[in-house]
Design a protein around this nucleic acid. Structure first.
Lengths: 207, 207
DNA sequence: GTCTATAAGTGGATAGAC
DNA sequence: GTCTATCCACTTATAGAC
């Protein structure tokens, strides 16, 4: 991992560690109290520094927000791409989407503060921050659109529901699991299997 | 509707009208900016009064929050109960759940500011407000649990997924539609039908 | 790199006039 | 019922010491 020094010295590991701690604590506080309600004093306290010191690492509260938001999406997108790309060439669309669901849930639940903060506060942030973050979101949505398009082309996705509605409904449903998933009630693998079953085949016995 | 007079006069219609306007504007602002970020000055401006006047109708910002939260759930719960109770006695669980889904979506999307505010900010509000609101939420969740239990007893709900996971996943998915539903892209009835199909039978063609 | 001190502005809530 | 005026606590961000 490249260190980010300002004067060319080689002592910047502590540098990035504090910076990461600020981002982690900020995401946790944004998640639970909202963006506006979170003060930089609270973030600083949680990170073990004083409020003024934050400005050595970040230019503003909004810059912290931007990095927290991006991290949430990028962590999920990375996990999804890795799993989909690990599949053999001729995999069915069903297998690809299953891999994407597992990756999405894994990324979501293993970076809970970043992902939950993103989901919870995206609708409430200043327009400027929203604009800066929009492309990261759009790219990830495009990835899912391509996956589902492929499933539609292959005749695996149902044709009696719109592909856009399917994507929005499924992604929304998956995202919301971070609000209620309880790792103490069964294994992650079982959880993924049940969610995948619901998404593919629904909740009711066939008529 | 009983008017709420303080001195026994019969002129209180204006009274409740201003009160309702405050709640409506507050819900809209809570939805889009969050609870903490919304100032009572903004709420007052939007309602066409001055900030100090709010305290004639409410004791505090938190009291406004409490009423906004309750309204969101109660509007949805009412719509659901009405539709389920309108069904004939021996209706299948599938028909009952379909009626509940339609009621949930209708209530959700026709009181968008109250329901979206509830969904977005519930995780971010002061603990005291959360405690006061909890019972309203719990009662509605219990209603769904009973519906799905019945479906399970009748053998209509799948047995290979947990009923709790099914409820949490489905309710979460339905709730999130308020964040992306666009009434300009097709009728509400078509929308309900597609969502219901996904919930019952999933998104993929049967293997 | 982190600290203290402070500037400049905004928040919820209250008092009392009308 | 609504207004104006105000209290006092708290906010982001900056300046400069160490």
């Amino acid at each position: 991992m490249a260190t980010k020094t300002r004067e060319g010295t080689a002592s910047a590991e502590v540098d990035t560690a504090t910076r990461e701690r600020i981002l982690l604590e900020a995401s946790r506080l944004f998640r639970h109290h909202g963006y506006a309600a979170t003060t930089l004093r609270e973030v600083a306290d949680a990170a073990g520094i004083k409020a003024g010191s934050i400005y050595y690492h970040f230019e503003s509260k909004e810059q912290i927000l931007g990095e927290v938001l991006d991290k949430g999406i990028l962590a999920v997108a990375k996990a999804v791409r890795e799993r989909v790309e690990a599949l053999p060439q001729g995999a069915t669309a069903r297998k690809k989407v299953a891999a994407a669901i597992e990756g999405h849930l894994w990324g979501l639940l293993h970076h809970g503060d970043f992902t939950s903060a993103n989901i919870r506060i995206y609708g409430q942030i200043p327009p400027a921050a929203k604009n800066r973050h929009r492309k990261v979101r759009r790219d990830y949505a495009d990835y899912w659109d391509a996956l589902l398009d492929e499933a539609l082309q292959r005749g695996e996705l149902r044709r009696d529901i719109g592909a856009t509605i399917a994507r929005l409904f499924v992604i929304g449903a998956l995202n919301w699991t971070v609000e209620w998933y309880n790792p103490q009630k069964g294994s992650f693998d079982d959880f993924v299997e049940q969610i995948t079953t619901i998404v593919f085949d629904g909740t009711f016995v066939k008529e």
